[in-house]
C-alpha cells in the first residue's frame, strides 16, 4: 500500500473549509472555529514527523482538530464554569421545571437534535464533494452558493465573464449531484 504523505502547502485549499465546518458544528462560533483550524494546521506542522502515513491527510488533521476542540472546552470550563455549583430543590408537583433560569428556557436544539446531527453529516458530505472538484469550480461554487456573493463580484475577483461563470457553476453542480447521489438523493 502506498504511504500517504503530507503537503502542508495545500492544506488550506484542500481541507480548511471541511475542518471549519466540522468545528462550527461543535463550537458554534465562527471566530473560535477559525482559530482552532489555524491552531490545528500549526500543530500538524509541528508533529509532521510523527505522521506514519497510515491514515489519509484529512483523517489525520481531523484527529488533531478533535484534540484542539476538547482543549478549547477545557480552557473555557476551567475558572468560571466550575465555580458555579447549581443545586436543585424540587418542591411541589412540577418537578420537570427547575428553579434555575437556564432550565426554564425552551431548549430548541434538543427538539430536533437528530435533524441537526443529520444536517452536520450532510454538510461534511457536501464539503468533501466540493473538495474533490477542480480548484476553480470549487472556488466559484463556494463563493456563489456558500458565501452568497454576487455574480458581478465573483467575475471581477476571478477575472471571468458571467457566461463563463455560469458554465463553471453548471459543471460544479453536475459533479456535486453525481457525487452526492449515492447517499443523499
Amino acid at each position: 500500500m502506498p504511504k500517504n504523505t503530507l503537503n502542508p502547502s495545500e492544506w488550506v485549499d484542500l481541507y480548511a473549509d471541511y475542518l471549519f465546518n466540522y468545528t462550527i458544528g461543535r463550537v458554534n462560533d465562527t471566530e473560535i472555529a477559525q482559530d482552532l483550524v489555524q491552531e490545528t494546521f500549526l500543530a500538524a506542522l509541528k508533529s509532521a514527523d510523527n505522521f506514519r502515513g497510515n491514515a489519509s491527510e484529512r483523517t489525520w488533521l481531523v484527529s488533531i482538530l478533535k484534540r484542539k476542540i476538547i482543549d478549547h472546552y477545557r480552557r473555557s470550563n476551567s475558572a468560571k464554569g466550575q465555580a458555579e455549583v447549581k443545586i436543585n430543590f424540587p418542591i411541589g408537583s412540577d418537578e420537570s421545571e427547575g428553579d434555575w433560569l437556564e432550565e426554564r428556557v425552551a431548549d430548541k436544539r434538543r427538539m430536533n437534535i437528530e435533524d441537526s446531527i443529520q444536517n452536520e453529516e450532510l454538510g461534511l458530505a457536501i464539503q468533501k464533494c466540493i473538495d474533490k472538484l477542480p480548484k476553480k469550480q470549487a472556488d466559484v461554487f463556494t463563493m456563489k452558493t456558500i458565501l452568497g456573493m454576487d455574480t458581478e463580484e465573483i467575475c471581477n475577483e476571478l477575472n471571468i465573464t458571467p457566461s463563463n461563470l455560469w458554465v463553471i457553476i453548471h459543471r460544479a453542480r453536475t459533479a456535486l449531484a453525481s457525487c452526492l447521489k449515492s447517499n443523499w438523493f
Partner: peptide, 27 residues
C-alpha cells in the same frame, strides 16, 4: 434538490482573505 440540500446543511466557508492569512502563517 441540490440547492435544498445545500441550504439545509448550512455550510460555512472561510473567505479567500482568511485562507490567505492561514497560508502565510503555515508558510
Amino acid at each position: 434538490k441540490l440547492t435544498s440540500l445545500c441550504s439545509k446543511a448550512k455550510l460555512n466557508a472561510l473567505s479567500n482573505e482568511q485562507k490567505e492569512v492561514m497560508k502565510k502563517v503555515i508558510e
